[in-house]
Every structure is written in C-alpha cells, then in structure tokens.
C-alpha cells in the first residue's frame, strides 16, 4: 500500500457564462499514491485542464477539499490569501507543470530555463545540464526555444520539471502538438523518469495510447458532460 500524496474529496467547479452556470467538475473524489500515475481522459471541454489547474491551485474550487503533500485546501476558506500563498509555495517547490506548448521562457536558453526553474524551487542548478543530457538534448543546451523543434522543446520542459525534483507532475496534453514518433519518445522519457524518481504524475490527455502508460485512469468525459 503506497502512501497517499493526493486526496480529492467532493471537488466541484462551475463557470459562469452569461446568466448560465456551467458545471465543469462535480463532486469528484479520488486519491493518488506517491509514485503513482493517473491519466485524466475525456473529450475536449470535459474539464481535464480545469482539474489540473485546481490540483495546482491556479484555480480555486467552488466546493470540496484537496489534500496534497500533507496540506489541506478547503474550498471557500476564509483565509483565501493564505491559501493562494500556500499553493504558490507548493507549486514552486513540489509541483511540476507541463503544458502542451510554451513551457519555456523564450528569452532564455534551454539551459537557462532549466536553471531558472531549479533555482526557483530552491534546488541546485548545477545539475541542469545533466538533466538536458539525460533527456537527449545536452548538445542543444545553449540554444533558445525558437531554435529547436517542438519535441526538443518538450524534452527541455521535462528536464526543467525533473530538475526541480517534484513530488507531483501535472502534464496537460504534453504531447498534443507533436507527431506520433516524437510523442512516443517524449512519453517514454516521461514515464521512465517518473518511475525512476518516484514522483507522482497526473496526465491530462485524449490520447488513449498515452493514457495507457499510466497506472490509473479517470475518464472525466464519462463523469462530466459539459
């Protein structure tokens, strides 16, 4: 029995569109153990990105509780400001987020990006080049994001995430903009490193093959019909 890293209880999120309230996540509950991986699947608009945003505090839920890394975040708490600060600290030190595109600062080289993220997390940036090498793009360390391919950019984004030694990786369609071959390669590296370093992973994807790489699967399309 693995120790629980994340516990979600009765999580709900609505958006207001004009006069209408649109529920995106409703009374969602699940847990994720340390080192485990979970695929969030569902069609576009099913709430995968919203849930990922809720799980790293970029958006706050309307109802429910999130327990992450022994910290409890209740919806609608009076100390909203403290909650935001606590989420910021968690994201800075323990949560790595990977988006489909534009994960890197365009004005910094790949190496500088990795160093930046590591230093923000309070980790030693000296290993940054190593991480790039482990991800197979060591020779591109001095290049800028616009000087490398989409797949290489995503590898750099993963190097950035692993360099901060996260407890949890949230990846939102990390291979969505890549061709099949590159996508497979990036996915292989992601699962391999995640397993080797024992961090947990939540992966939002509509790609069934990618989702199959995760240990658990949560179909939001099935749960929420938006």
């Amino acid at each position: 029995m693995t120790e629980s890293l994340l516990a979600v209880r009765g999580l709900s999120k609505h958006f207001v569109s004009g006069n209408e309230t649109v529920p995106v996540i409703e009374k969602l509950s699940f847990t994720l153990g340390q080192g485990q991986s979970l695929a969030l699947t569902g069609r576009s608009g099913s709430g995968k990105s919203t849930l990922l945003n809720l799980l790293c505090g970029l958006e706050l839920p309307d109802a429910g509780t999130i327990v992450l890394h022994d910290r409890v975040f209740e919806a609608g708490g009076a100390a909203a400001r403290r909650t935001v600060t606590a989420w910021s600290t968690l994201r800075r030190q323990h949560i790595g987020v990977v988006f489909q595109e534009a994960n890197l600062m365009p004005a910094l080289s790949l190496l500088e990006n990795v160093q930046f993220r590591a230093q923000l997390a309070g980790r030693d940036p000296a290993n940054s080049e190593d991480w790039l090498t482990r991800l197979g793009i060591g020779e591109l360390a001095q290049r800028y994001p616009d000087q490398v391919s989409g797949g290489q950019r995503q590898r750099a984004a993963l190097a950035m995430v692993f360099a901060m030694e996260p407890a949890l990786i949230l990846a939102d369609e990390p291979t969505g903009s890549l061709d099949r071959h590159t996508s497979d390669e990036v996915a292989r590296v992601l699962f391999d490193l995640q397993a080797r370093h024992g961090c947990s992973l939540i992966l939002g994807t509509h790609d069934a093959e990618l989702a199959a790489g995760c240990q658990q699967r949560l179909d939001l399309g099935h749960l929420n019909a938006v």
Binding site: C56, L58, V84, T85, S88, T89, L90, R91, R92, Q93, I95, V97, A102, N103, M105, P106, R117, L120, A121
Partner: peptide, 14 residues
C-alpha cells in the same frame, strides 16, 4: 502575458 503567467505557474505569487 502567457510567459508572465508561467512565472505564477512556477510558484511566484501574483
């Protein structure tokens, strides 16, 4: 704006 938002994602406060 996205890149400034990225700083928030990386844990900097608004």
């Amino acid at each position: 704006a996205w890149y400034f938002r990225l700083l928030v994602v990386w844990g900097m406060q608004q």
